[in-house]
Computed example of a mutant assay.
Amino acid sequence: MSLVAFLGAIEIGLVFGLVALGVFLSFRVLNFPDLTVDGSFPLGAAVAATLIVHGVDPYAATAVAIAAGALAGLLTAFLNLRFGILHLLASILTMIALYSINLRIMGRPNVALIGSDTVLSPFQGLGLPNLTLKPLFAGVVLLVVGLLLTRFLLSATGLAMRATGSNPRMARAQGVDTQAATYVGMAISNALVALAGALFAQMNGFADVTIGTGTIVVGLAAVILGEAIFRARALTVWILGCIAGSVIYRLAVALALNASFLGLNASDLNLVTAVLVAVALILPGARNPLRAMIAGRKRP
């Protein structure tokens, strides 16, 4: 694998680390299966790209994209909590609606950002090539977001949110407003995914209505890989595992596609993704039969 492909995989892995953190928050912390991310990722890209093209400051455009993602998460939570729609179905409804909304926002299937200022523009005068600047910038953003998310989840509000996902009935008995915790968690989750979409569009120079396809699979793969690698269940380790899982996943995809002896092409990306996710799902449980056998032998 060439240096260009390696750094490109690192860059995309770091950007999708934000998606992994969002998926971790909804699936693991809130226990809320959320497919909205397939729509909120291109939503962040669409909002940021459209505003930038119309002359809005890239950082302001990114902030608006984050807010748009939070609204998407709130809509999914509202459909579930207010109308009793199953969380999975509520997220699918929001995801489907966002496809048309993204088209409305962009006015066409894709928006090019070539020649426009982006969040990277202020740093391009430092003498670093884009090949190095992009992963560095994405890494710094991901580090800051990871620290803020860790601090939040260790706060009283974060503990209430974790209790809501772990045992909502017990949480309500302790005076936790589980509905408010769900609203906040879903908003933050999809805001992180929209931030990833906004950064992805600005780093790659375009926003497309189809870039969100399979986002949930990538996010889940990162979370599962992280859990398989880092077996500890401490919060900080979990978050580090999500980030590491995202980077490792993208490197594995890049290696598979660049391995000439495998004979894979770019069109085989979905196949590679499916295989990697299947392996990630199988590995954590691969030790279970052995553990059961050992446990059985220890019993009197």
Rank of each mutant, 00 (worst) to 15 (best):
S121H: 15
L195S: 04
A280G: 15
R162Y: 10
A187M: 00
L281T: 10
G139T: 01
T76H: 10
I294K: 03
P289V: 06
M186V: 07
I12F: 09
M293E: 05
E11Q: 15
V141G: 00
A266M: 15
M170N: 14
G245L: 07
L86S: 07
L240Q: 02
R291M: 08
P33S: 07
A163S: 10
L25A: 01
C242Q: 13
P289H: 10
L159Y: 08
G296R: 00
Y183P: 12
L133C: 07
M170V: 13
L192V: 03
R28Y: 02
L98Q: 03
F152M: 06
L43H: 00
V176Q: 11
G84R: 08
L283K: 13
V141T: 07
F6Q: 04
V217C: 00
T157D: 11
I224V: 09
V144R: 13
N31M: 03
A9N: 05
H87D: 12
G13V: 09
I243T: 10
C242E: 06
A63Y: 14
C242I: 14
A112N: 04
A196Y: 02
L126Y: 12
L7T: 04
G214I: 01
G226L: 02
G296Y: 02
F16S: 04
V111S: 00
R172K: 05
L86Q: 11
L131Y: 07
L142D: 03
P58I: 05
D38R: 00
I294M: 11
S155Q: 14
D38T: 06
G139Y: 11
A196G: 06
A254Y: 09
A9Q: 06
V277T: 10
T164V: 00
V144E: 14
L131W: 09
V141R: 07
P58A: 13
L133Q: 11
F137T: 15
A68V: 01
N31E: 03
V223E: 08
F230G: 02
Y99F: 11
P58Y: 09
R287L: 09
A45T: 15
L147D: 09
M161Y: 04
W238S: 03
R250P: 15
N265M: 14
K134R: 15
V223Q: 07
R233P: 00
M161N: 02
A252G: 14
D38L: 08
L240G: 11
A228Y: 06
D57L: 11
M203S: 05
I211V: 01
A171L: 06
L71F: 01
L147W: 09
V29W: 01
A9C: 09
I282M: 14
A252V: 09
V247K: 13
V23D: 01
A63T: 07
L269P: 06
L7Y: 01
N288V: 14
N80K: 12
I105C: 01
T50R: 00
F27C: 11
K134Y: 14
L120G: 04
K298A: 14
A201I: 08
L14N: 13
G73Y: 01
E227K: 02
R231A: 03
I96Q: 13
K134W: 13
G69A: 05
S26G: 06
R299Y: 08
A181V: 00
G285E: 08
L290W: 07
R287H: 02
A228E: 09
L86T: 12
D268A: 15
T164R: 04
I239G: 07
L149G: 00
A266W: 12
A77K: 05
